[in-house]
């Protein structure tokens, strides 16, 4: 099965890259862009058969490596 992990900056953590993207979008003439936050998207192929166990394992991967929980949150989707 496949795990899809989104790693995003926590609320309140400044995101200068998101800000730069925001400014560039406005520079290109895109109106109505209120905020931009940049994050990471990671796909993991797993040999697991139990989705709940897989999700727990991926959460452990996020805690230990994929996210720095000082500044980042993560969310996990499992696709069987």
């Amino acid at each position: 099965m496949k795990a899809r992990v989104h790693v995003t900056l926590k609320n309140g953590v400044l995101d200068p890259q998101g800000k730069a993207i925001h400014q560039s979008l406005e520079g290109l003439g895109f109106d109505g862009v209120e905020d931009v936050r940049q994050g990471k998207f990671i796909e993991i192929e797993l040999s697991d058969s139990d989705p709940d166990a897989a999700k727990a394992r991926v959460a452990e991967m996020c805690e230990q490596l994929l996210a720095n929980t000082v500044i980042e949150d993560y969310s996990i989707e499992i696709e069987a």
Partner: peptide, 11 residues
């Protein structure tokens, strides 16, 4: 050590 080193504010 506590904390984290993020991208420079100037990018």
């Amino acid at each position: 050590l506590p904390g984290v080193l993020m991208r420079n504010a100037s990018l």
